[in-house]
Amino acid sequence: MTDNHFTGFSLIELLVSILLFSIVMLGLVEFQTVLTSTIWQAKKRHTAQTMAFEILDRYPDTQVINLPAQWNFKIMTTRYHQCQIVKVIIWIPSAEEISQQRWFCRL
């Protein structure tokens, strides 16, 4: 068996390798994009939950709450006999809204 026997396969092999590499890389890039987005969304929702909790803790003094840019919050109150049911809703861009509620009966 001489060296000439192996030389004919290198181009096909290279092409197959490039094809495989491209498929694998495309898959990996797509997967990483989805994962990064998931992590980022989870982080934003986590921050929103903490902020909603903080707003309820500070209620009715909610003037000092500083939300990140483009985030909005709304406070809705419902009466129940002597109590107020306070619901805080936070809207985050490109994510679902976050809400928490608590009763206040000593206001």
Binding site: A42, H46, F53, H81, I85, Q100, R102, W103, C105, R106
Partner: peptide, 30 residues
């Protein structure tokens, strides 16, 4: 990613439970 999601779910549950328990105490005084 899974850890972040788990962490988020745990925190969300904790806040909900705390708010409900605190609401129960507030309601109790009435």
């Amino acid at each position: 990613s899974t850890l972040w999601q788990k962490d988020y779910i745990q925190y969300k549950r904790y806040y909900q439970q705390f708010n409900q328990a605190q609401s129960s105490i507030e309601w109790a005084i009435t």
